[in-house]
């Protein structure tokens, strides 16, 4: 049974990840005094998209269709590397954080190429911003993971995250830095506004303007899984769970914490304004500074 637990958690992540976007949207609706869309709206969207046909640009080539497909596959693969609820991930080996970051790089690279494939200037603009911001989040995550690795002596994601305890100041610093990187990577406010309706201000949404039907459904599913993967890392930092506790309790605690994370993303989106684009590097530099500070604390 125990050997299957990580794969059960993998399945839970796969199935429940679109729910988080629903929670974020309901939180935002609550702050705005609206009732908001159903919690399961993203499921409906994905199901509908998969059943629909699509319109392809005459400019686009096979890369346009490969982008969402490989992007979703990379996110699902990364899910197998992400530990959940204080337990080791399905696949775990020393150095796997590098692979984890690399898989999101692959997802991003293919999404950006699919955007450039359409030859649209709007999509080119979104692609340009997307690659630039995520290039700056890489050092944040790398330094954050290194600080945790120094603290725990472990080299795998499961090892470093499950050994971390919030009582130490460096863990708290890393949690803040990772939360900032999480918001940036998932295109949330203050970096990007998923609800914006003006193409010129979009980042992630504008890159997928031309995708429709099943391709867009795959993009939505992939983004949901990515949100889950990166979120589960942060949640693991906060939860004082031990791997020898019953896995059902651990998983339940993890799920509750994921819901709290989604609510807090909703709160952040409701109470903060979006940053001006040229301010974004400054916030990411601040996050990198927090990670670096955490690393220095962890040396002591």
């Amino acid at each position: 049974m125990q050997t299957f637990v990580p794969w059960i958690q993998f399945g839970i992540g796969l199935v429940l990840s679109p729910l988080l976007a629903g929670i974020v949207n309901r939180t935002k609706a609550f702050f705005a005094g609206r009732r908001g869309q159903p919690l399961l709206q993203v499921y409906y969207d994905i199901a509908k998209g998969l059943a629909k046909g699509a319109v392809f640009s005459r400019t686009a080539t096979w890369i346009f269709r490969a982008g969402p497909l490989i992007g979703a596959a990379a996110a699902v693969t990364a899910l197998a590397l992400a530990p959940f609820g204080g337990r080791p991930a399905a696949v775990s080996f020393p150095g796997d954080p590098i692979l984890f970051l690399g898989l999101f790089g692959l997802m991003r690279g293919l999404t950006v190429l699919a955007a450039l494939d359409t030859g649209s200037s709007f999509e080119g603009m979104g692609a340009s911003r997307e690659v630039f911001f995520s290039a700056l989040t890489e050092p944040v995550m790398m330094l954050g993971f290194l600080a945790l690795a120094r603290e725990s002596g472990a080299l795998s994601l499961s090892g470093i995250l499950n050994a971390a305890s919030l009582e130490r100041p460096e863990t708290a610093l890393v949690a803040v830095a990772l939360f900032i990187a999480f918001l940036c990577e998932n295109s949330r406010i203050p970096f990007d506004d998923p609800n914006t309706h003006l193409e010129l201000t979009m980042i992630h949404e504008v890159m997928v303007l031309d995708h429709g039907g099943p391709d867009f459904a795959l993009i939505q599913a992939g983004s949901a899984v990515k949100f889950w993967c990166l979120g589960s890392l942060i949640v693991n930092l906060f939860l004082p769970l031990r791997p020898d506790w019953p896995w059902t309790a651990n998983t339940a605690a993890g799920l509750a914490a994921m819901a709290v994370l989604a609510v807090s993303v909703g709160v952040v989106e409701s109470v903060t304004a979006r940053l001006r684009l040229n301010r974004v590097p400054q916030l990411l530099a601040a996050a990198a500074a927090l990670s670096a500070l955490a690393l220095i604390f962890s040396l002591g």
């Binding site: 970051l101 690279g109 190429l113 690659v131 630039f132 290039a135 790398m142």
Partner: peptide
Amino acid sequence: ASVLALVFGLSLIVYV
């Protein structure tokens, strides 16, 4: 390591 992370991020921009 963090310089390298930045370099790898930027090299994605270069090749994209």
